[in-house]
Computed example of a mutant assay.
Amino acid sequence: MDNLPLVIASSNEGKIREFQKLLADFPFDLLTQPVGFEIEETGKTFMENARIKAIAVSKATGQLSLADDSGLSVEALGGAPGIYSARYAKSDNERIEKLLAELKPFSNRKAKFECALCIASGENVLIEVSGFCEGLITFFPKGENGFGYDPIFEVAKSGETFAEMEHEKKKQIGHRGSAFKLLKPELKKLLTSIRK
């Protein structure tokens, strides 16, 4: 059986590497979205944005597309940065600094990561799932692994930030891993129906 092309609707290299690992057991040829392809994320939720990206990339490439929209919501900041997680500041370091500065007046450091995944074919949404990971924002960055807000997000009951965890552990308990556990059985059904 030939592998099916699947376009990852992202230009974020960290995210693409993570998907390559998560999808290693599936018969897909993973492709990246066209270089310079810009999508305006106008959704009000992670899922709406994932849907917008998956449909836009699928229509542009004529292939199945997988999009994720994920981010960090901090309770004391009214859910910010939320859907603006990636656009909160120019770089990972600046985003972390800004978040820690805004959180200074608050004792509540509860936060959660959310990941919404959407697979689309043209205009049609084939699969949608969401995963979550609860935790706390640390007072300073810890750890060398991961990307984004990973160094300041300590997973509930673990005592470790995402950036301190081994990849396998993060994959098991992280928001993308949680969403992926829900996606896997749906993907298997989808592949079965495509290949009939």
Rank of each mutant, 00 (worst) to 15 (best):
G122W: 05
E123V: 03
E123Y: 04
E123F: 01
N124Q: 15
N124M: 09
N124I: 08
N124S: 13
N124P: 00
N124H: 09
N124Y: 04
V125N: 02
V125L: 08
V125R: 02
V125G: 03
L126Y: 06
L126M: 14
L126N: 06
L126F: 09
I127R: 12
I127H: 13
I127F: 11
I127L: 14
E128L: 02
E128V: 02
E128Y: 04
E128G: 03
E128F: 03
V129G: 06
V129A: 09
S130L: 12
S130N: 13
S130Q: 15
G131T: 05
G131F: 09
G131M: 05
F132V: 10
C133D: 00
C133G: 00
C133R: 01
E134F: 11
E134I: 02
E134M: 08
E134W: 06
E134N: 13
E134L: 11
G135M: 08
L136S: 07
L136I: 05
I137R: 04
I137M: 07
I137P: 09
T138F: 02
F139L: 14
F139K: 14
F139C: 07
F139R: 13
F139V: 10
F140V: 03
F140M: 09
K142I: 07
K142D: 00
K142P: 01
K142C: 06
K142M: 07
K142F: 03
K142N: 01
G143C: 09
G143L: 11
G143M: 10
G143Y: 07
G143V: 10
G143P: 12
E144I: 11
E144H: 12
N145L: 06
N145H: 15
N145C: 07
N145M: 13
F147E: 07
F147G: 10
F147T: 08
G148P: 05
G148L: 01
G148Q: 02
G148Y: 00
G148T: 02
G148E: 00
Y149I: 10
Y149E: 11
Y149M: 13
D150L: 01
P151I: 00
P151T: 00
I152K: 12
I152W: 10
I152T: 08
I152L: 12
I152G: 10
F153P: 05
F153C: 06
F153M: 09
F153L: 07
F153K: 00
F153V: 04
E154M: 15
V155G: 04
V155Y: 04
V155I: 15
V155N: 03
A156L: 15
A156N: 14
K157A: 10
K157T: 01
K157H: 10
K157W: 04
K157P: 00
K157I: 00
S158L: 13
S158V: 03
S158R: 07
S158E: 13
S158K: 12
G159R: 05
G159S: 08
G159E: 06
G159L: 10
G159K: 05
G159T: 08
G159Q: 08
G159C: 11
E160I: 01
E160K: 15
E160R: 14
E160D: 08
E160Y: 15
T161L: 09
T161W: 07
T161Y: 06
